[in-house]
Amino acid sequence: MGVIEDEPQSGHFSVKRRDDIFAEKLKTRIWQEIPSDSNPYLAKACLCHGYELFDLMQNCRYSEVLYLLFRGELPDKDESKLLEQLQIALINPGLRHPATHSAVYAGVGKSDPAHILPISLSVLGGQHLGGAEVEQAMRFLRRACRKPVEFTIQQHILPMLEQQNTVKADIHPVPGFGSHFGDIDPLVNQMARHLQCLPASSKCLTWGMTFTSEIATYNIGWLMTGLAAAVFADLGFQPRAGAGLYQLLCAPGLLAHGLEYANKPLSAVPFVGDEQYQFESEDG
């Protein structure tokens, strides 16, 4: 690399403050706190989108208030049922899921129990079967469901299959759909059939069912991220909420498995022996 200039680069912009106007106070549409009469730092009442918290505690289900928090209105009976059934479907990714696995290692490693969720939810934020894929799948589904499934197959599935025919790893030709361990995931596809029969199921779930029936011949189908995305989209949640909602709904299982191991000795999990720990060269 040749010497072009060897003096300090002068003439950079001198530093000066911008005249940006910043908000003087925080604003929220979600939550109102009514100050107590004697201490302005304490609230004597809280309202969520206008509903008093005690009113919600006495008259609503958790899933309804969850929906209210993000959507601004209480759901109807059908919407509530769809969300609640998805909450149960997602409640535990299972111990083999890498996010749950990380919770187990946080637990058995005697990490502070307060860290089990932040640790495992960070792992669950990824683009492969994680929160980031849910957001991408919501954006994809909201566009794709306006067109026939054949369009997506022509645009995304067939070209990828041609490119990937020698690759053994899983493929996600579009976000939220693909193979899992080389095959269609039977449980997720069964869940999709069930949720699609609920009255609040709408365009995205319906489109996804048609799509997966067409692509099954290529050994690809619904992934859990795609199913969650379809339900979230049909319930009117915004894509940017998708990653966090997915993490939120999967959190109980991660925490439960982490805590399950928090009292166990380090020897309660495998520690691979040197003979099974193989150094490899990236160059083959």
């Binding site: 106070k25 925080l26 604003k27």
Partner: peptide
Amino acid sequence: NALRCEDVIYVGPPPRRVKSRSINY
């Protein structure tokens, strides 16, 4: 960054009541 209740401006819907629920779950 201590905040009094009044330091957060609420711009959402006015107070309302949860309607009588007739849902049988």
